[in-house]
């Protein structure tokens, strides 16, 4: 078991240049601003004093390499700069918004699985049959609908029409969070499940054709017991990496969906900051999200190895 995880240090080392690249790219965003960045950011609020102060704060008056080193040094101390609108540390704002976004992501993932597993099973038992076609239509539609529009349609049907769910907000208690976050999570789950279903359906079909499933069937396993006891565990393995790769997509979607449902997470923080031209906050959220995706990539590889004894990433990369 443990020796199979020996690839982890190497994998971490491999992500170091990627993480540096991410910081470099985020750092250079400030220099893509047209003309004098400080002036561009302040817009109509600009006075010679405020421009000078912001230039100083962003360190724009120093040589480029020095600016980057300063940026890295502050990052190492967990300092993402000071928000221009809130006049408080960006790190605090980001940390405050993380729980909302993470809960939304986890909830959406659970709902995606709750949708994908039964639908994949339904589709894979008789490929090409009526149910399979129905599931195929769902995946086509699910991928073809803009996520924010799905959210609006769910609001229209379930919140405005049937009055079963709130149109937005986050609630106060844990129970309320689950209730308030249901529609936004469902929205994300509808967008995410087509990808999961495609992978799970095809791997379930492969597993269902294998000899050991035939043996299980001949011993009387069928329906749900066959599915949970024999098929799912093996069919799930390739799907784990598909989910890992697409988690970035889910994160991006969640930022937009937070806007639709007025949730106080990272997405709302980022987009509100864009409207107030609060550059340090936009930069901080972007950096956090990208580093999060890098970490998720590593975690996916680890989970993949634990789930499937046949996978040996350490050997694969050294071969």
């Amino acid at each position: 078991m443990l020796h199979r995880l020996s690839f982890v240090p190497g994998r971490l080392l491999q992500s170091v240049p990627v993480a540096f690249g991410v910081t470099l790219l985020v750092f250079f965003l400030a220099h893509l601003l047209p003309g004098n960045a400080a002036l561009a950011l302040l817009g109509q609020r600009a006075t010679p004093e405020s421009v000078a102060a912001l230039t100083e704060q962003l360190g724009l008056n120093k040589p480029l390499w020095e600016q980057y080193l300063l940026f890295l040094k502050q990052l190492g101390q967990g300092n993402l700069g000071t928000s221009l609108t809130y006049q408080s540390p960006v790190t605090g704002l980001v940390l405050g918004a993380i729980p909302v976004t993470l809960t939304l992501l986890a909830y959406a993932l659970v709902l995606s699985l709750a949708i994908s597993i039964p639908l994949s099973a339904l589709a894979s038992f008789r490929p090409g049959g009526g149910r399979d076609l129905g599931v195929r239509a769902f995946t086509l539609l699910g991928q073809g609908m803009p996520q924010f529009w799905v959210g609006i349609m769910l609001i229209l049907l379930l919140a405005v029409g049937l009055r079963t769910f709130p149109v937005g907000g986050y609630g106060e208690t844990a129970g309320e969070h689950l209730y308030f976050l249901f529609l936004p999570s469902l929205t994300l789950a509808i967008a995410m499940s087509p990808t999961i279903i495609r992978s799970l359906r095809s791997s379930m079909i492969t597993v269902l054709e294998s000899d050991y499933v035939g043996t299980a069937k001949s011993k009387g396993a069928s329906g749900v017991s066959l599915l949970t006891g024999h098929v799912l565990r093996n069919a799930a393995i390739p799907t784990v990496s598909v989910i890992g790769v697409n988690l970035g997509y889910l994160v991006g979607g969640s930022l937009v969906i937070e806007r639709v449902f007025a949730l106080p997470g990272l997405g709302s923080l980022m987009i509100n900051s864009i409207f107030t031209r609060d550059f340090p906050t936009v930069q901080g959220v972007t950096l956090f999200v990208a580093l999060f995706v890098v970490v998720v990539g590593i975690l996916t590889d680890v989970i993949y190895t634990i789930l499937d004894p046949r996978v040996d990433l350490g050997r694969a990369s050294s071969a």
Partner: peptide, 18 residues
């Protein structure tokens, strides 16, 4: 790999902003 770390919407939104 570096560019891949940025979720599609995050990068597009930030770049359009900048």
């Amino acid at each position: 790999d570096v560019f891949f770390a940025f979720p599609f919407y995050v990068m597009v939104i930030v770049l359009v902003f900048v």
